[in-house]
Design a protein around this nucleic acid. Structure first.
Lengths: 210, 210
DNA sequence: TAGATTGTTAATCGATTAACAATC
DNA sequence: TAGATTGTTAATCGATTAACAATC
């Protein structure tokens, strides 16, 4: 099969896990990994792994498994880690600053092009390689360089307004870290990264097992 | 149906979204919401909403819908927001500090009982209401108060070792913020909160739509 | 060669959606 | 009452798992 396939969402969500694991294997000098090896490391079944990899432009070899270098290359390509995606972070609070200072982004193909806040106290401060800019200047900034992804790291009350601003500025995808569902037109992809929700999921499981 | 039902995972993952939304409705003074109202706000179908709510100890009324106050109470109870869960945060870097200073935890039933790091530079520093403690003191600290949840906010190379330490210390659930799958025994629930993975999911969708 | 492992088909499992009688 | 909306069953859709011939 070819990369132009539509990949099922659950498969897409597993791809980053495969990528992390295969990069580790490569660091350890492992050249081949079977579907069973990968499944064990990631808590999947070998059947799922083979099904998932069959969506990609990638073939295994009987008795050996999959070549880790090829697998990494294919995954990086599919996940866009071999291109640069321009990112704005909105909200220079603790979370926004943590992200802006996080070195791992550039290695994964994400370039922080701007960090914005409404708080005059924060505007002008340096965070990592970026300077906090006024929210008012966002439209202008986005005209200078087209932005691919906006990350919402503001309190939940402000999340929808920020999403609207990002959409107007022409972003094509939004990562929403606020604890609130935001609406966007269908051509703009929205993913909620749900730290609080994950915690609540755990709290639910604690309640069940007690 | 009763709360002692096993709820399907996708349902559990939607519960926090319902809770946030219903709390908002209550703030706006809305006393009743139909399954269609809720579905529209959350990007679901009314059918899904009714199915989900049927798992809970909660009845709607024809023509009116669901009473928001009752819905909030039931959701809070299921998600454990009406109890306190004791939390350790491991890693006092940007992300760990962001979490420790995040006020919203206590409102959702999570009490930060400790913030740990291995870096002598950080140990002793105050973050929010907590003081950064040495990783070495974790076992001892966990003996004083039993800990429900451990949050891993360390670089991915250290994630598995931290998970092992947390399991030994008796935590019953782990929220893993590191970009790496960690293993834990089956009785310890693990959820990965995947900021980087979410970004990569978006990058994939950007690649498709171009 | 013998045996391990792939790629793929078919079976199973589970979640979502549609439909509609019951009900307020 | 008439009509809106629930609760629930059945149908559909989609993902995971099992199984096994092909292959290295």
């Amino acid at each position: 099969m070819f990369e132009s396939d539509v990949m099922p969402k659950p498969v897409i969500r597993r791809l980053p896990k495969y990528l992390v694991h295969v990069q580790e294997l490569r660091e350890e000098g492992v050249d081949w990994a079977s579907s069973q090896d990968i499944a064990d490391a990631l808590g999947l079944t070998s059947s799922t792994v083979r099904q998932d990899l069959s969506h990609m432009d990638m073939r295994g070899i009987s008795k050996k498994g999959y070549e880790t270098s090829q697998l990494e290359a294919v995954l990086r390509q599919i996940l866009g880690a071999d291109r640069m995606h321009r990112v704005f972070i909105i909200g220079a609070g603790n979370l926004g600053r943590a992200l802006a200072e996080h070195g791992a982004f550039s290695r994964r193909g994400f370039e922080i092009c701007g960090l914005f806040d409404v708080d005059p106290e924060l505007i002008g401060r340096s965070v990592g390689t970026a300077k906090v800019m006024s929210m008012d200047s966002l439209p202008e900034q986005s005209k200078r360089v087209p932005i691919d992804i906006g990350i919402i790291a503001v309190p939940s009350q402000a999340a929808q307004a920020v999403a609207d601003t990002l959409v107007k500025a022409g972003v094509r995808a939004i990562l929403n870290l606020a604890y609130k569902h935001v609406q966007a037109p269908p051509e703009v992809a929205v993913v909620d990264a749900r730290i609080m929700e994950s915690l609540q999921e755990l709290a639910y499981s604690l309640g069940k097992s007690k």
